[in-house]
Amino acid sequence: MKEQNLPYEKILLEKLKKGDQTAFSSIFTHYYRDMVLFGGNFLADKKDCEDVVQSIFLKLWNDRDIIQIDTYLKSYLLTAVRNGCLNEIRRKGSDHEDLSAADVELSEITSEYDTNNYMLYSDLNQHLERALNKLSPAIKETFLLNKFEGLRYKEIAARLNVSERTIEVRIAAAIKFLRSYLKEFYLPGLFFIILSLNNVISLWKKIN
Protein backbone atom coordinates (compact mmCIF):
# COMPACT_ATOMS: atom_id res chain seq x y z
CA MET A 1 0.00 0.00 0.00
CA LYS A 2 1.09 3.53 -0.62
CA GLU A 3 2.54 5.41 2.29
CA GLN A 4 1.28 8.90 2.84
CA ASN A 5 3.46 10.50 5.43
CA LEU A 6 3.67 14.04 6.61
CA PRO A 7 6.03 15.87 4.25
CA TYR A 8 9.34 16.89 5.80
CA GLU A 9 8.60 14.80 8.86
CA LYS A 10 12.26 14.56 9.88
CA ILE A 11 12.75 18.29 9.78
CA LEU A 12 9.59 18.89 11.76
CA LEU A 13 10.72 16.39 14.39
CA GLU A 14 14.09 18.10 14.68
CA LYS A 15 12.36 21.44 15.11
CA LEU A 16 10.06 19.89 17.69
CA LYS A 17 13.08 18.69 19.66
CA LYS A 18 14.30 22.28 19.79
CA GLY A 19 10.97 23.35 21.27
CA ASP A 20 9.40 24.82 18.14
CA GLN A 21 5.65 25.15 18.74
CA THR A 22 4.99 25.82 15.07
CA ALA A 23 6.43 22.44 14.13
CA PHE A 24 4.38 20.90 16.94
CA SER A 25 1.22 22.55 15.59
CA SER A 26 1.93 21.27 12.07
CA ILE A 27 2.26 17.71 13.31
CA PHE A 28 -0.83 18.13 15.44
CA THR A 29 -3.09 19.41 12.68
CA HIS A 30 -1.78 16.87 10.21
CA TYR A 31 -2.59 13.85 12.35
CA TYR A 32 -5.18 14.85 14.95
CA ARG A 33 -8.38 14.03 13.09
CA ASP A 34 -7.08 10.73 11.71
CA MET A 35 -5.84 9.70 15.16
CA VAL A 36 -9.21 10.39 16.76
CA LEU A 37 -10.92 8.33 14.04
CA PHE A 38 -8.41 5.52 14.56
CA GLY A 39 -9.20 5.62 18.28
CA GLY A 40 -12.85 5.24 17.34
CA ASN A 41 -12.06 1.65 16.34
CA PHE A 42 -11.47 0.92 20.03
CA LEU A 43 -13.54 3.40 22.05
CA ALA A 44 -17.15 4.24 21.43
CA ASP A 45 -17.05 7.74 22.86
CA LYS A 46 -15.61 10.57 20.75
CA LYS A 47 -14.70 12.64 23.81
CA ASP A 48 -12.68 9.72 25.24
CA CYS A 49 -10.82 9.35 21.95
CA GLU A 50 -10.05 13.06 21.81
CA ASP A 51 -8.75 12.95 25.40
CA VAL A 52 -6.47 10.02 24.58
CA VAL A 53 -5.09 11.74 21.49
CA GLN A 54 -4.60 15.08 23.23
CA SER A 55 -2.69 13.48 26.08
CA ILE A 56 -0.45 11.76 23.51
CA PHE A 57 0.39 15.13 22.00
CA LEU A 58 0.92 16.68 25.41
CA LYS A 59 3.37 13.88 26.19
CA LEU A 60 5.04 14.31 22.78
CA TRP A 61 5.68 17.94 23.67
CA ASN A 62 6.77 17.41 27.26
CA ASP A 63 9.12 14.53 26.40
CA ARG A 64 10.26 16.02 23.12
CA ASP A 65 13.95 16.00 24.03
CA ILE A 66 14.03 12.38 25.20
CA ILE A 67 11.56 10.76 22.84
CA GLN A 68 13.01 8.26 20.35
CA ILE A 69 11.00 7.56 17.22
CA ASP A 70 12.50 4.66 15.29
CA THR A 71 9.61 4.10 12.90
CA TYR A 72 7.51 6.51 10.89
CA LEU A 73 5.87 9.13 13.03
CA LYS A 74 2.51 7.83 11.83
CA SER A 75 3.09 4.30 13.21
CA TYR A 76 4.46 5.76 16.43
CA LEU A 77 1.35 7.90 16.91
CA LEU A 78 -1.08 5.15 15.94
CA THR A 79 0.58 2.69 18.30
CA ALA A 80 0.26 5.27 21.05
CA VAL A 81 -3.44 5.74 20.26
CA ARG A 82 -4.06 2.00 20.32
CA ASN A 83 -2.27 1.53 23.62
CA GLY A 84 -3.96 4.58 25.11
CA CYS A 85 -7.39 3.31 24.10
CA LEU A 86 -6.74 -0.21 25.38
CA ASN A 87 -5.60 1.26 28.72
CA GLU A 88 -8.77 3.30 28.84
CA ILE A 89 -10.85 0.15 28.26
CA ARG A 90 -8.97 -1.65 31.03
CA ARG A 91 -9.43 1.30 33.37
CA LYS A 92 -13.15 1.63 32.72
CA GLY A 93 -13.85 -2.07 32.41
CA SER A 94 -15.45 -3.43 29.28
CA ASP A 95 -19.19 -2.95 28.96
CA HIS A 96 -19.46 -5.83 26.49
CA GLU A 97 -19.70 -8.79 28.81
CA ASP A 98 -21.90 -10.70 26.41
CA LEU A 99 -19.10 -11.18 23.86
CA SER A 100 -18.39 -14.71 22.63
CA ALA A 101 -14.91 -16.22 22.62
CA ALA A 102 -14.69 -15.78 18.83
CA ASP A 103 -15.67 -12.12 19.16
CA VAL A 104 -12.92 -11.47 21.67
CA GLU A 105 -10.34 -13.30 19.60
CA LEU A 106 -11.29 -11.48 16.40
CA SER A 107 -11.22 -8.10 18.08
CA GLU A 108 -7.78 -8.80 19.46
CA ILE A 109 -6.15 -9.38 16.07
CA THR A 110 -3.66 -6.57 15.92
CA SER A 111 -0.06 -6.54 14.86
CA GLU A 112 2.77 -4.39 13.68
CA TYR A 113 1.18 -4.61 10.24
CA ASP A 114 -1.66 -2.56 11.54
CA THR A 115 0.16 0.57 12.52
CA ASN A 116 2.87 0.48 9.87
CA ASN A 117 0.59 0.08 6.90
CA TYR A 118 -2.58 1.59 8.23
CA MET A 119 -4.29 3.76 5.65
CA LEU A 120 -5.53 6.82 7.43
CA TYR A 121 -9.05 8.01 6.87
CA SER A 122 -7.91 11.08 4.97
CA ASP A 123 -5.58 9.05 2.71
CA LEU A 124 -8.37 6.67 1.76
CA ASN A 125 -10.70 9.55 1.21
CA GLN A 126 -8.20 11.15 -1.12
CA HIS A 127 -7.72 8.01 -3.20
CA LEU A 128 -11.43 7.58 -3.59
CA GLU A 129 -12.14 11.17 -4.37
CA ARG A 130 -9.45 11.13 -7.01
CA ALA A 131 -10.79 7.95 -8.54
CA LEU A 132 -14.37 9.21 -8.59
CA ASN A 133 -13.35 12.55 -10.02
CA LYS A 134 -11.87 10.78 -13.02
CA LEU A 135 -15.35 9.56 -13.95
CA SER A 136 -17.48 11.77 -16.16
CA PRO A 137 -20.00 13.81 -14.10
CA ALA A 138 -23.00 11.85 -15.37
CA ILE A 139 -21.43 8.48 -14.62
CA LYS A 140 -20.19 9.65 -11.22
CA GLU A 141 -23.60 10.96 -10.22
CA THR A 142 -25.28 7.74 -11.30
CA PHE A 143 -22.74 5.62 -9.47
CA LEU A 144 -23.02 7.65 -6.24
CA LEU A 145 -26.81 7.55 -6.32
CA ASN A 146 -26.74 3.80 -6.73
CA LYS A 147 -23.92 2.77 -4.41
CA PHE A 148 -24.02 5.41 -1.73
CA GLU A 149 -27.61 6.49 -1.58
CA GLY A 150 -28.88 3.02 -2.32
CA LEU A 151 -31.27 4.04 -5.08
CA ARG A 152 -32.45 1.41 -7.58
CA TYR A 153 -31.77 1.79 -11.31
CA LYS A 154 -35.43 2.56 -11.85
CA GLU A 155 -35.43 5.34 -9.26
CA ILE A 156 -32.25 6.85 -10.66
CA ALA A 157 -33.60 6.71 -14.19
CA ALA A 158 -36.72 8.58 -13.06
CA ARG A 159 -34.72 11.12 -11.12
CA LEU A 160 -32.27 11.85 -13.94
CA ASN A 161 -34.90 11.55 -16.62
CA VAL A 162 -33.06 8.94 -18.71
CA SER A 163 -33.79 5.32 -19.58
CA GLU A 164 -33.00 2.43 -17.26
CA ARG A 165 -30.74 1.02 -19.95
CA THR A 166 -28.62 4.22 -19.81
CA ILE A 167 -28.23 3.77 -16.07
CA GLU A 168 -27.08 0.18 -16.56
CA VAL A 169 -24.49 1.29 -19.11
CA ARG A 170 -23.23 4.06 -16.81
CA ILE A 171 -22.91 1.80 -13.79
CA ALA A 172 -21.04 -0.77 -15.85
CA ALA A 173 -18.67 1.90 -17.14
CA ALA A 174 -18.04 3.20 -13.61
CA ILE A 175 -17.33 -0.26 -12.26
CA LYS A 176 -14.97 -1.08 -15.10
CA PHE A 177 -13.03 2.13 -14.59
CA LEU A 178 -12.86 1.99 -10.79
CA ARG A 179 -11.72 -1.61 -10.87
CA SER A 180 -8.71 -0.84 -13.03
CA TYR A 181 -7.95 2.51 -11.37
CA LEU A 182 -7.96 1.23 -7.81
CA LYS A 183 -5.89 -1.78 -8.79
CA GLU A 184 -3.09 0.62 -9.65
CA PHE A 185 -3.12 1.75 -6.04
CA TYR A 186 -3.19 -1.81 -4.77
CA LEU A 187 -6.67 -1.36 -3.49
CA PRO A 188 -8.74 -4.16 -4.96
CA GLY A 189 -10.25 -4.75 -1.53
CA LEU A 190 -11.41 -1.17 -1.43
CA PHE A 191 -13.27 -1.64 -4.67
CA PHE A 192 -14.92 -4.74 -3.38
CA ILE A 193 -16.02 -3.03 -0.22
CA ILE A 194 -17.45 -0.07 -2.12
CA LEU A 195 -19.61 -2.38 -4.14
CA SER A 196 -20.95 -4.11 -1.09
CA LEU A 197 -21.89 -0.92 0.69
CA ASN A 198 -25.18 0.75 0.35
CA ASN A 199 -24.97 3.57 2.79
CA VAL A 200 -21.76 5.26 3.67
CA ILE A 201 -23.10 8.66 4.20
CA SER A 202 -20.56 10.51 6.24
CA LEU A 203 -17.67 9.97 3.87
CA TRP A 204 -19.64 11.15 0.91
CA LYS A 205 -21.16 14.27 2.29
CA LYS A 206 -18.29 16.21 0.82
CA ILE A 207 -18.67 14.79 -2.66
CA ASN A 208 -22.40 15.07 -2.80
Partner: peptide, 28 residues
Amino acid sequence: EALRNIWQGLNPAFNPEEIDDQKALNSV
Protein backbone atom coordinates in the same frame (compact mmCIF):
# COMPACT_ATOMS: atom_id res chain seq x y z
CA GLU B 1 -6.25 -6.45 8.62
CA ALA B 2 -6.08 -4.63 5.28
CA LEU B 3 -9.77 -5.20 4.64
CA ARG B 4 -10.63 -4.16 8.17
CA ASN B 5 -8.53 -1.03 7.67
CA ILE B 6 -10.44 -0.07 4.53
CA TRP B 7 -13.74 -0.84 6.18
CA GLN B 8 -12.89 1.37 9.12
CA GLY B 9 -11.83 4.15 6.76
CA LEU B 10 -15.13 4.00 4.93
CA ASN B 11 -17.15 3.75 8.13
CA PRO B 12 -15.52 6.28 10.45
CA ALA B 13 -16.70 5.90 14.02
CA PHE B 14 -17.43 9.62 14.25
CA ASN B 15 -18.34 12.28 11.74
CA PRO B 16 -14.90 13.55 10.68
CA GLU B 17 -16.29 17.04 10.13
CA GLU B 18 -17.25 17.24 13.79
CA ILE B 19 -13.70 16.72 15.00
CA ASP B 20 -12.44 20.23 15.62
CA ASP B 21 -8.66 20.00 15.39
CA GLN B 22 -8.10 23.75 15.79
CA LYS B 23 -10.04 23.82 19.05
CA ALA B 24 -8.11 20.77 20.24
CA LEU B 25 -4.81 22.34 19.25
CA ASN B 26 -5.66 25.53 21.12
CA SER B 27 -6.55 23.59 24.24
CA VAL B 28 -3.31 21.56 24.09
